[in-house]
Design a protein around this nucleic acid. Sequence first.
DNA 1: CTCAAAGTGTAGCATAGAATACATTCAGTG
DNA 2: CACTGAATGTATTCTATGCTACACTTTGAG
Lengths: 163, 163
Amino acid sequence: MTQPGKRRNARGRPKAGGEAARARTADQHADAFRRTRRAHIEETAEDYAEAVAELIASRGEARVVDLAKMLGVTHVTVSRTVARLQARGLLTCEPYRAIFLTEEGRRVAERSRRRHEVVVAFLQSLGVSRAVAEADAEGLEHHVSGETLAAFERFLDRRRESF
Amino acid sequence: MTQPGKRRNARGRPKAGGEAARARTADQHADAFRRTRRAHIEETAEDYAEAVAELIASRGEARVVDLAKMLGVTHVTVSRTVARLQARGLLTCEPYRAIFLTEEGRRVAERSRRRHEVVVAFLQSLGVSRAVAEADAEGLEHHVSGETLAAFERFLDRRRESF
DNA sequence: CTCAAAGTGTAGCATAGAATACATTCAGTG
DNA sequence: CACTGAATGTATTCTATGCTACACTTTGAG
Ligand SMILES: [Mn+2]
Ligand SMILES: [Mn+2]
Ligand SMILES: [Mn+2]
Ligand SMILES: [Mn+2]
């Protein structure tokens, strides 16, 4: 095994077997993967904004330690990430003080919270337990497009109508 | 603003407002985030295994360039990732040769493919377009727990029954 | 008013993932 | 069977995330 492997006709491969037709091209695949990667980059911003908003709502202010406990990382990680998100214009804070959301940060937080809630509610409406729904949603939420989120809400609305 | 901020009672904060009761604790949150992070680590392995299997099925072998085009990254990234996944025991390959799946790699690929298909089918059954379903699934799939996947399949089965 | 513990910040290290630039190997053609 | 273009590999750099260890600030007790 691991033979030299015949080069697929240099430039312009001959499309093996019955490929060409209904095959999702490499480009389509690549596009999906790129979108997923972009979502991952946004993920941190969304989770932090949401967490800061939640902390401010529940305890009046968001401190580095609180975020660290909530996100399950050390205060060092939070500190550095907060600095980055501050540079991005989502948060503001001064040394040894609490963390605040900017106008944009509030928008991101609100959008994230809503989406998070929709995803959790949707999963639960399918019979998924509360705990698992929450856990799965934490990852799923960042990859739900507008179209899919709308489909989730449509589903929930129909459920509600026929209770 | 950004006042000194009263220290929340040093050790043992007094639980502001009406928190204690129905509040998802920081620990629960942290758990969800940790699971999501773990899923992200597995993500690359799953996508690569799935892609390699798909390439082998569709064109006979998986080469670095093919993976690069499919995943939308440079061949350098693929090369290094393949080396890592080889060290992890999912792939095998020798310099300038094609890439193969190990026994474990095949298992991962098969599981990933199935889950990917279920997620796509589920989204489409909710009315999401094929293209968006495929794109969203590429990210969602890695955060769908066994319980949630089962719920998706249950839903699809019911749909099929009452066609 | 002091001061120790809690909270923050910083230095330094590691891994994953992505890129550009350059080097090396393979294989089909001429 | 030599050669050249395609495929691979390597060197180096960058960013995002984590961590441990250690330093510095704040603040509530005493
Ligand atoms: Mn999340
Ligand atoms: Mn969330
Ligand atoms: Mn994927
Ligand atoms: Mn996939």
